[in-house]
C-alpha cells in the first residue's frame, strides 16, 4: 500500500505545480483580456494610481512649501517656475495640488471605509435576521437616503462644528445606506442556496454562517460599491469645501482651493480650473473603476446598464 503512494506523490506534486503555474498564466492572461475589454477599468486605475502617487510623494515632488506665502509672485499664471501658477498669497499651486490630494483622497477614503464597516454590518444583520429588525434597519436607511447627500452632510457637519473629524463623520453617514442596501439585497438572493442550508442544518452558529458563508460571496459587490462610493464621497467633500463648510484651513484640499481661487476668476482663472480638474479626475477615476469592476464581475449587468 505504501509503494503506490510513494510513486504517485512526485507525480501529483508535479502536476499540481504545473497546473498552478498554468493557472497563474491563464489568470494573468485573463486580466490582460479583461483590461483590454474594459477600457474603463484601466483608465480608472491609471488615473487613480497617478493621483495617489502624486499625493503620497508630495513631500518629495512638491517644488515649494504649500503653505509658504511669497507676495512677490502673487496670482501668477502658469509659468516654468510655477507650473500651475500661484494664488493670491503667491503660494505655488502645483505644490498645493499635490498636498491637497492627500487631504481630499484621505477624507474620501476614510469616510468610505467607516461607511462600509457600518453599512455592511447593518446589511448583514438585516439580511440574515429578517423580520422586525430588518424592517427597522431598512426603513431607517430609506429615511437617510431621502436626504440629498450634500444636504445631510451639510447638516451633520453643521451640528458637529467645523473640523476634519466632523467632515469625515458626515460623509461616512451619507454612504452607510448604500452599503446596507446592496449587502442585504445580495443576501436575499443567496439565502436559498444549498450551502447555506447545509451550514444551518449542521448547526453552525449565525455569526459563523454570516461571516464564513455569506460574506465571501458579497466581496465583489462590496468592492464595486466601495469604488463608486469613494467617487461620491470625494465629490461631496469637494462640494462642502467649495461652499466653505469643509475641513478648516490651513491644510489645502482641492475643494477649498477652488473656493479660495474662485474669487480671482477674472484675474487668474487657473486657480479655479486646475483644482476643479483634479476633483473631476478623482471622481472620474473611482467611477470608472467601479463601473469597470461591476462589468467584469457581473457581465450580465453590462448590457442592461449602458456602456
Amino acid at each position: 500500500m505504501a509503494e503506490p503512494i510513494a510513486n504517485h506523490m512526485p507525480y501529483a506534486v508535479e502536476t499540481s505545480i504545473a497546473s498552478a503555474s498554468a493557472e497563474r498564466r491563464a489568470r494573468a492572461l485573463g486580466w490582460v483580456r479583461v483590461l483590454r475589454k474594459e477600457p474603463q477599468l484601466w483608465i480608472g486605475s491609471l488615473i487613480l494610481v497617478a493621483l495617489i502617487a502624486g499625493a503620497l510623494l508630495a513631500p518629495l515632488s512638491a517644488p515649494y512649501d504649500p503653505l509658504m506665502p511669497d507676495y512677490s509672485v502673487s496670482l501668477h499664471a502658469p509659468s516654468r517656475a510655477h507650473l500651475f501658477g500661484t494664488d493670491n498669497l503667491g503660494r505655488d499651486q502645483l505644490s498645493r495640488i499635490l498636498y491637497g490630494g492627500r487631504l481630499s483622497l484621505f477624507v474620501g477614503t476614510c469616510a468610505v471605509m467607516i461607511g462600509m464597516l457600518i453599512g455592511v454590518t447593518l446589511g448583514l444583520i438585516s439580511g440574515y435576521k429578517m423580520g422586525v429588525l430588518d424592517s427597522l434597519i431598512m426603513r431607517t436607511m430609506d429615511g437617510i437616503l431621502a436626504f440629498p447627500g450634500l444636504v445631510l452632510a451639510l447638516s451633520i457637519s453643521f451640528a458637529l462644528g467645523p473640523s476634519l473629524r466632523s467632515v469625515i463623520i458626515a460623509l461616512a453617514a451619507v454612504r452607510v445606506p448604500g452599503f446596507a442596501r446592496v449587502v442585504r439585497g445580495q443576501m436575499l438572493a443567496l439565502r436559498n442556496r444549498e450551502y447555506i442550508e447545509a451550514a444551518e442544518a449542521l448547526g453552525a452558529r449565525p455569526v459563523r454562517i454570516v461571516l464564513r458563508h455569506f460574506l465571501p460571496n458579497l466581496v465583489s459587490i462590496i468592492l464595486v460599491q466601495v469604488s463608486l462610493s469613494a467617487g461620491s464621497a470625494i465629490f461631496t467633500e469637494a462640494s462642502l469645501s467649495f461652499l466653505g463648510f469643509g475641513v478648516p484651513p490651513p491644510q489645502p484640499d482641492w475643494g477649498g482651493m477652488l473656493h479660495d481661487g474662485y474669487v480671482y476668476l477674472e484675474i487668474n482663472p487657473w486657480l479655479s480650473i486646475i483644482p476643479g480638474a483634479f476633483i473631476f479626475l478623482a471622481v472620474l477615476g473611482f467611477n470608472f473603476l467601479g463601473d469597470g469592476l461591476r462589468d467584469t464581475l457581473d457581465p450580465q449587468q453590462r448590457r442592461r446598464r449602458g456602456l
Partner: peptide
C-alpha cells in the same frame, strides 16, 4: 462615454467654467 464622463463632472466646476 460622454454620459458616464458627465456623471463625474463636478457641478460647481462646470458652473465656474461656464461663468468664465
Amino acid at each position: 462615454g460622454i454620459a458616464s464622463i458627465s456623471l463625474s463632472l463636478p457641478n460647481f466646476w462646470l458652473g465656474i467654467l461656464l461663468i468664465y
